[in-house]
């Protein structure tokens, strides 16, 4: 079943004086329920824009976005957006636990939201850090807090905007495993945008490659690697290498051309 659908979505930004700049040109794609979709594209091609339109945070200029069959005009309860810059979306005046509770306290009340924060914190491996403040944690730990906060809202779908681009390589592998683990345990639907080819192959069921601006869908590839995916073994799998070769060639060729 199609959980998220983008139908001929176009996005234009106004420019000073001149005609509006078209960032995205009639992009159509869909994510199946329970699927892990990766959207791969060069920097600045409009990945964040695309994801924010999916999340109901940004209205498309034309075209339609649907989640669970309903049109998206405002942020839908089914999907939560995980920000590219964790440091900007965490609230520095709140402890880790209170940051996680922030996702639900307007619905559950402060006490129950704080209690409910323990489980997602444990899931991301941050039990015992509830009373710390975000600025006392490393970047990787802060991104875990952001993920725990998203999970606290118990969404059916995560919209992840390059969630690991700001952390070091080892931490990135670690967080990728964490996200895969949570995805399968919670039976989530995930749409993740990234410019990291290996990350896309390692995590996704399917990869959509975007062109440069004005952005359209260049290609759609099924990953077809067995699961569970071990971070080391998968990277040595012939299919992995083949996909990596193909995708890198595509992205680099585009740059050269």
């Amino acid at each position: 079943m199609r959980f998220l659908e983008l139908d001929e979505v176009t996005k234009e930004y106004p420019t000073r004086g001149g005609p509006p700049a078209r960032v995205m040109d009639r992009v159509s794609l869909s994510v199946q329920e329970g699927e892990f979709l990766a959207v791969l594209g060069p920097s600045g091609c409009g990945k964040s824009t695309l994801l924010q339109m999916a999340a109901g945070l940004l209205p498309p200029t034309s075209g339609a976005v649907r989640i669970a069959g309903r049109p998206v005009n405002a942020p839908p309860p089914e999907a939560v957006y995980v920000f590219q810059q964790y440091s900007r979306s965490l609230l520095p005046w709140r402890s880790v636990r209170d940051n996680v509770a922030f996702a639900t306290e307007h619905r559950l009340g402060r006490r129950r939201a704080r209690e409910a924060a323990d489980e997602p914190l444990k899931l991301v491996g941050l039990e015992g850090f509830g009373d710390h403040f975000p600025w006392q944690l490393s970047g990787g730990m802060q991104q875990r807090v952001a993920i725990a906060r998203a999970l606290a809202a118990e969404p059916a779908m995560l919209l992840m905007d390059e969630p690991f681009s700001a952390v070091d390589a080892l931490t990135r592998l670690d967080l990728q495993s964490l996200v895969l683990d949570i995805w399968s345990r919670r039976r989530l639907t995930v749409m993740l945008v990234t410019h990291d080819v290996e990350e896309a192959i390692q995590l996704a069921d399917r990869i959509i490659v975007l062109t440069n601006r004005p952005t359209t869908v260049a290609e759609e590839i099924a990953v077809a690697l067995p699961r569970p995916r071990d971070p080391i073994a998968t990277r040595e799998h012939p299919r992995f290498l083949e996909l990596r070769h193909h995708l890198l060639e595509r992205l680099l060729a585009r740059h050269a051309g």
Binding site: L57, A74, Y81, F83, Q85, S89, L91
Partner: peptide, 9 residues
């Protein structure tokens, strides 16, 4: 981003 964060929840 922090305002958008509030909206997404």
């Amino acid at each position: 981003d922090s305002i958008a964060m509030g909206r997404t929840f």
